[in-house]
Computed example of a mutant assay.
Amino acid sequence: MEKLAEPVYHIEEHYWNILKDVSDPEFPISVVDMGLIYGIKEKGGVVDVTMTYTTTACACMAWIESDIKNRLLQEDNVNDVNITVVWDPPWTVDRMTEEGRQKMKRWGVSSR
Rank of each mutant, 00 (worst) to 15 (best):
E2D: 12
E2F: 12
K3P: 05
K3E: 15
L4Q: 05
L4E: 13
L4F: 06
A5W: 03
E6L: 15
P7A: 06
P7M: 06
P7N: 07
P7W: 05
Y9A: 09
Y9Q: 10
H10Q: 10
E12M: 00
E13P: 03
E13H: 09
E13T: 14
E13N: 14
H14A: 00
H14P: 00
Y15I: 00
W16L: 03
W16P: 02
N17K: 01
I18P: 01
L19N: 02
L19V: 02
L19Y: 04
K20G: 01
K20Q: 01
K20Y: 01
D21S: 00
E26D: 04
E26H: 04
F27V: 15
P28D: 05
P28G: 03
I29R: 05
I29H: 05
S30R: 03
S30L: 07
S30E: 06
V31L: 05
V31D: 12
V32Y: 12
M34E: 11
L36Q: 01
L36P: 02
I37M: 04
Y38C: 08
Y38Q: 08
G39T: 10
I40P: 07
I40M: 08
K41R: 14
K43Y: 02
G44K: 11
G45D: 04
G45P: 03
V46T: 14
V47W: 03
V47I: 08
V47L: 05
D48A: 08
V49G: 02
T50S: 12
T50P: 01
M51F: 09
T54G: 07
T54Y: 07
T54A: 08
T55A: 10
T55E: 04
T55Y: 04
T56P: 10
T56E: 13
T56I: 11
T56S: 09
A57H: 10
C58L: 06
C58M: 08
A59H: 07
C60D: 08
C60V: 11
A62W: 05
W63F: 09
W63H: 10
W63K: 11
I64Y: 03
I64P: 03
E65C: 09
E65G: 08
E65M: 08
I68G: 05
K69P: 06
N70C: 02
N70V: 02
R71A: 00
L72I: 00
L73Y: 00
L73C: 00
E75M: 01
D76F: 00
N77R: 04
N77V: 00
N77W: 01
D80F: 04
N82S: 10
I83K: 08
I83T: 13
T84H: 13
T84Q: 13
V85H: 08
V85F: 10
V86R: 10
W87L: 13
W87V: 11
D88V: 14
D88R: 05
P89H: 12
P90H: 10
P90M: 13
P90I: 13
V93Q: 14
R95N: 15
M96S: 13
T97P: 14
E98V: 12
E98H: 05
E99S: 12
E99P: 05
G100S: 11
R101H: 12
R101D: 15
R101S: 13
K103T: 15
M104L: 15
M104S: 12
R106S: 15
R106W: 06
W107F: 13
W107C: 10
W107H: 11
G108M: 13
G108R: 11
G108V: 11
V109L: 15
S111H: 08
R112D: 14
